[in-house]
Design a protein around this nucleic acid. Structure first.
Lengths: 339, 339
DNA sequence: CTGAAAGCGCTAACAG
DNA sequence: CTGTTAGCGCTTTCAG
C-alpha cells in the first residue's frame, strides 16, 4: 500500500479504541491496560503504521534532532567525533543534522538560526571563530541546550566540553623529559584557536614545571595544511638541534617526518617524535608514531550528559566538562641521544 | 523577547492583514499587492518573526531536509562528498541529516525507515552491503526521491550516481603504458564492493586493450586499513618486479611506499606510483603522488540534479549519472626503468 | 488580490 | 484507565 497513507486514526479505528489511547500506546505511556495495548499493537502491525515524525514534533515540541555545527567534517577529528556522537545519541532516539561552519562567521550564524527555526532539541557547536559578535549572539539566542565543543566561549547558560590540551601536552612532555630530552620542538600552525593556544601553554608550562627554560623551538605553519618542512629543516641543521619534536596534525607531521628523513636522521634513535590528533597516518608510519589524542567516545558521552542534564534542568548554571588527551606510546620515542 | 513566542498570527495582526496574506508574503507567492507585502515585511522585521519550520513541514509536506546514509564519514571520501553536498543543497534551502551505516545492514535498514518517518524530501544512500534484502526493501519502500551513491543497486525508480572507476583506471594505465611500463601492480583490498570490483575490471580491461597479458600482480589487503607491506615487499623482490604500482586508499598507499623504501627503490626513478582516492597523505608525500580521484563538487552537482529532476517528475524511469575519475599527474610517475 | 476556514497528524489536557 | 476535544503553527483551498 501507499506510503504514509495510514494515520493514527486508522490505527485507533481498527483497534476499536480512541486516538488518545492509540497515542498512549505509541508513546509507551504508563496508564494503558494490557488489552488496549495489545489491540493497538496488533492494529499497528497489520497496518504497518509509522507515526509521522513531523506531526509528533510539532505537537510535542520535540524534534528528537540535534544540530551539529562543526568547523569541517573533512577534519578527521570531527569525523570521528560525529561518528561517536551519532552512535551515542541514536540510543536516545536522536538523529543529527550536520553543517560545516568552514570558518565563515556568517555561515555559522545562519546555520545556528536555522537550527533554532527547526526546533532542534539541542545544538553542538564548534564555531571557527570564538570571538565573532554575530556568532556569539546567535549562540546566546538559542533557546535549546547548547554544548560548545572545545572553544573558549563563555556564553551564560551554555555548557562546554573542553579538551584538556595543556594537561595532555604536559604528560607527553613528561615522557620526553623522562627519557632525557631537553630540546623539544613543537610544530603546529599559526592560529588563535583554543587547541593551538592551549597546547603552546602546556608546552611552556611543562618546561617551567621541569625547571627548564623553554628553547626557541616553536614552529608555526601558516595553516593547518601548510608544510613545516623548511622550518623544521632549519631547526634540524642547528648545532643544538632538537632531540625530540611534537607535531600537531597530519600535514605538520608529514612534513616534519620528511625533514627528519632529509637530514638523514632516524626515528627514534636520533630524534623522538610525538604527534597530536588523528592517528590514521601516524599509526601506519614506520615506526608507528606515538600519539596524543582525545577519546571520541568519551567526548560523545560527555556531550550527551551535558545535553541531557540541561534538558532536565534548563535553569542550571553553565557547566564545563573536561576530557583528557591520552598519550599512546608507539615506538617513535626513545632516549635522548648523547651529544 | 522570548524565543519562538511570536507566530504568524502576531505578524498578521500587526500588519493588519489576514494570516493567509502573511503566509503568502513569507512564502514569496506571486499574487500579493506591494502594499500588503510591505506591511507584512515590516511586521516581520519589528517582531523578529521566524517561521516555525516544523509547522511548515507538516502543513506543506516538505521538510526541506535530505537524509544521507553513508558507510562512514570517517572515510575522507565521504567527508569530502558531504561537504560538497551540503554546500550545494544549502543553496536550495536544504539541510542534511547524516547517518553512518557502518556496514551494518540492520542499522542501515532502520536509518532508512527513520528517514521515511521523518519525511525527508530526498535520500542519498551508499549502503555498505549492496545485496542485503532488508536494505534493498527499505530502499524500495521509500516514497521520496532516492539517489544511490556508487553502488550497484538496481532498484526500480531509484536513481544512481556512479563513479566511473573502470574508465579512470584505464586512463591511469594508459599513462603508465605510454611511459613504457608493462608490469604494473594493483594494490587494494579484498571486498566485493563496487569500487573495488570496477577498478579490478578496469585494470584488466586496460591490459586487454593494450594487447598485453595482465601479470599476476594483484595485491588485496584483508581490509581497507590493513597493510599490504608484506605482499608488496614480496612483489618487489621478484626478478620481474613491477615497474609501476597503483594503490587504492591511504593505508594501502602508506604500506606500499614503505615497502618500496625498504627495498631501496626510489620513486619515480625505480618505480612509478599512482594512488586512488583521497589526496591528503598523497599530496604531502615527497614526491607528491599522482592521483586518480573523483571531483566532489561534480558529484554533488550530479546528485542535486538527479534529486531535483525526480522531485519535479516523480514518475520518470530510474536514471544513472556517471562521474569520471580524474587523473592528476604529480611527479610520482616516470619512464619505466631499463631492465 | 485577500480573508475565512479547514485541516496536516499528532499529543496533551481534561473529564469521566 | 479511556474517550473527547482542543489545538501545535502553518499552508492552502475556496469564496469573494
Amino acid at each position: 500500500m501507499g506510503k504514509g497513507k495510514v494515520d493514527i486514526r486508522d490505527v485507533a479505528a481498527l483497534a476499536g479504541v480512541s486516538v488518545g489511547s492509540a497515542s498512549r500506546v505509541i508513546n509507551g505511556v504508563e496508564n494503558v491496560s494490557p488489552e488496549t495495548r495489545d489491540k493497538v499493537e496488533r492494529a499497528i502491525a497489520i497496518l504497518d503504521y509509522r507515526p509521522n515524525h513531523t506531526a509528533q514534533a510539532l505537537r510535542s515540541r520535540s524534534s528528537k534532532t540535534i544540530g551539529c555545527l562543526f568547523t569541517d567534517v573533512t577534519n578527521p577529528l570531527y569525523a570521528r567525533l560525529f561518528r561517536s556522537l551519532e552512535e551515542r545519541l541514536r540510543k536516545d532516539g536522536y538523529m543529527l543534522l550536520l553543517a560545516n561552519g568552514l570558518n565563515d562567521a556568517q555561515r555559522e550564524t545562519e546555520t545556528l538560526a536555522l537550527f533554532a527555526r527547526r526546533g532542534m532539541d539541542g545544538v553542538i557547536a564548534a564555531p571557527g571563530n570564538e570571538t565573532d559578535a554575530q556568532v556569539l549572539a546567535a549562540l546566546q539566542a538559542l533557546a535549546m541546550p547548547v554544548v560548545v565543543l572545545d572553544r573558549d566561549i563563555a556564553a551564560p547558560g551554555c555548557d562546554a566540553l573542553l579538551f584538556d590540551h595543556a594537561a595532555g601536552m604536559k604528560a607527553a612532555m613528561a615522557e620526553l623529559f623522562a627519557q632525557g630530552h631537553q630540546r623539544i620542538a613543537l610544530a603546529l600552525w599559526r592560529a588563535s584557536s583554543r587547541p593551538v593556544r592551549r597546547r603552546i601553554e602546556g608546552y611552556r608550562a611543562a618546561y617551567k614545571a621541569a625547571g627548564l627554560r623553554a628553547p626557541d623551538m616553536l614552529v608555526q605553519a601558516a595553516s593547518a595544511t601548510a608544510s613545516v618542512f623548511a622550518d623544521v629543516d632549519a631547526l634540524l641543521k642547528r648545532a643544538d638541534r632538537p632531540t625530540a619534536i611534537v607535531a600537531q596534525g597530519t600535514y605538520t607531521l608529514g612534513s616534519t617526518l620528511r625533514a627528519i628523513e632529509a637530514n638523514g636522521l632516524r626515528v627514534p634513535q636520533d630524534i623522538s617524535v610525538v604527534t597530536i590528533g588523528d592517528s590514521d597516518f601516524a599509526r601506519d608510519h614506520s615506526p608507528s608514531i606515538s600519539l596524543l589524542n582525545v577519546d571520541a567516545q568519551r567526548v560523545a558521552e560527555g556531550i550527551a550528559m551535558l545535553l541531557h542534564s540541561r534538558m532536565t534542568d534548563p535553569g542550571q548554571p553553565g557547566r564545563s566538562e573536561r576530557v583528557p588527551l591520552q598519550f599512546t606510546d608507539r615506538g617513535s620515542i626513545g632516549p635522548a641521544p648523547r651529544p
